[in-house]
Design a protein around this nucleic acid. Structure first.
Lengths: 212, 212, 212, 212
DNA sequence: GATGAATGAGCGTTCATTCAT
DNA sequence: CATGAATGAACGCTCATTCAT
């Protein structure tokens, strides 16, 4: 009988992550304020007081949850990008967007952008963390690709910062819509085809014109 | 004594819209849950009880506010688009994005996307209204342009629905960031230059290749 | 119909003092921690939320209550003492102790010493206020009498500070016992006779021996 | 290996008294309500659940602690008083007050009066025990001395019960102040000098007048 | 016996809503 | 109509107590 979900005295070290998982799901679905600590506790299969054994209060649980969600993902992306160094800037850019979608857009992490957009105003500390730990590094990768492509003549000269925003927005917005305005997405939304369409658009849009 | 903002004898018909304005500003800034009815009343210069004379409860005020914000804007856009019928599809698309930015992105209405993203999950009725009254008509305009451009050979054939999402996302995301993750926007963000960069990218990205 | 205890919209300015009265009675009887805000509200005839309209939280209510109880009483005592300036130091001392008993020991204020003893450790700010606003001025009066009596030869020389403590203690302790260890007081305790006995003891105890 | 304070194998019989010691220190310092069972357990060096192996609940622990503190002390006082039988009533009274101070006022037991004053109202059973086991016997000794002194003409006739209260109060109050309103005691309070001053005052105050 | 993770009743506090004036 | 004092349900959090190990 390996499994014994006895209500008392269970696996201690699993608790925090179970609570964080429940918190993530509920915060992502309903937002910070509309999520009750009791909901989280029940979703995690524990009693009202248990979350407080591991997290000082609701706000700290929220922040801890974000930390847990954000941090472990980025190294993977950076490592993968290195393996593409031999490709052209355009190929690397498309590979990066696809990877981004697969690592975040197709996983529960896709809920994060919506959550951050909704709560950043009320949790500036969290917003800063999100930006520093997650957005900045991601932006840096794409920015480097754009600069490299422009320098090599593969891409035409563009305002890099604005292009960066315009390139990321479709990926982020697709995640947002999967978790918020679902009605605004095509009924049978296929994320990979969507990213492919985006890449087609961007690749031709960025390319330097052939001198006839 | 033409107008005297006496506490009682003010133009009464203005009350509801003053309350709605205050509600809009506060809901947009802090979200639904974090906005107190008392804050709205105070911001509108009325007492705690007055909003309830015009709106059944907080949720109805929220919905009424959204209706008031959304509906009056769309006719204007549609009218303007008609005047561009003589332009090419690409020119019309750029003109439309610029107009969109000017009519919403540069006005207080830019706060709406963030608000909808944050609250759609808790107010499905509101989300449906937003989609039907605001997003659908806007999407329809752009969809029509894309189809027309493809049909005429000006644009290359693309998956219209996915392209549509990818085209709108950068505009929407810029509005969101102005109201939520401000840190993620370039410090001196110039919306019109941003839209221009986006149009450059899209126009070339959409164009059909010249044969030969 | 002058009285109309309608549950809503009643005499506003009476509320804070009604709440303070209820709080005083309950805090004095049960101590700070064992007194629930709900008890206070019910005792004051209001609902759970009403005390918070007038006092930030339980602690502030406690402090406000003490301020209200302490401050108004001292001027009266000082004024009365002035009227006794023509008496001997011993006569003044006895008159002062009797007055003290009548102004505090026989009124609800007699509950204060017990309350302060019980809570001073957990509310140092309150304890300081109590000492500064209440004890210090009272001590100063008695100290001055002792010094005057010693200087004039009416009292024999004594360590004034220790005598001061020993003189006040019986008065304070009688108040404490009326509200706490009631069992330790004679069954038919007559405060005025008690003070008289104390004065007899003190007057003779303090008197300088007649030479010869 | 004569003694090794290993976490488990410690002398078990000591557990309850270690818990009582910790409880006494904390209850005396912070009061009943503000003292958490967990604090007591930690201070006693045991785990959260251990106190419940020896005491039914917090209230029983409180009562057991008081019993343990109170009972063992009184025999000693009575024995010592017997040894003074040859002294005058006044000398015996002073010796008794000094002994009282030394046996209680200068030991941790000095914390008891404050604790009893604070909690008697919420624990009438405890208050009765305190009075019966501690106060009554002490009062009886002093009462007997007063009666004897009056009968022999050493003391003038006084209301014995009230004098009794007035005589004990300064001793008790000094203990209270050391643990509660410390600010109200002279900065360098010397208990023995204080008792001496009190005795000077009382001896002269009680003495029968010499018939001139 | 001893542990400490877990429980859940209970309290302080907030705020949407009401209604006497 | 407008006010704002009052209400009371609901939620965050604490801590005495339990019990599987």
């Amino acid at each position: 009988m390996p499994e014994m979900p006895s209500p008392r005295g269970r696996r201690k070290e699993a608790r925090p992550s179970e609570i964080i998982s429940a918190a993530f799901a509920l915060f992502a679905e309903k937002g910070y304020a509309a999520t009750k600590m009791e909901d989280i506790a029940r979703a995690a299969g524990v009693s009202r007081g248990t979350p407080y054994l591991y997290f000082t209060n609701k706000e700290e649980l929220f922040k801890a949850m974000l930390r847990d969600m954000l941090l472990p993902k980025l190294q993977e992306g950076e490592a993968r990008l290195l393996a593409m160094a031999h490709l052209s800037a355009g190929e690397q850019l498309c590979a990066l967007l696809q990877m981004w979608w697969q690592l975040q857009g197709e996983t529960p992490l896709a809920a994060l952008p919506k959550l951050m957009i909704a709560e950043a105003g009320n949790f500036s500390e969290v917003a800063e963390m999100y930006q520093k730990e997650f957005i900045e590094p991601g932006d840096a990768m794409i920015r480097a690709l754009l600069q490299k492509g422009i320098a090599s003549g593969e891409f035409r000269p563009l305002d890099v910062e604005y292009a960066l925003t315009a390139i990321c927005a479709p990926v982020v917005m697709a995640m947002v819509m999967r978790h918020s305005l679902t009605c605004c997405l095509p009924a049978e939304f296929d994320g990979r085809r969507y990213i492919q369409t985006l890449c087609d658009l961007l690749l031709q849009g960025l390319r330097a014109r052939e001198k006839a």
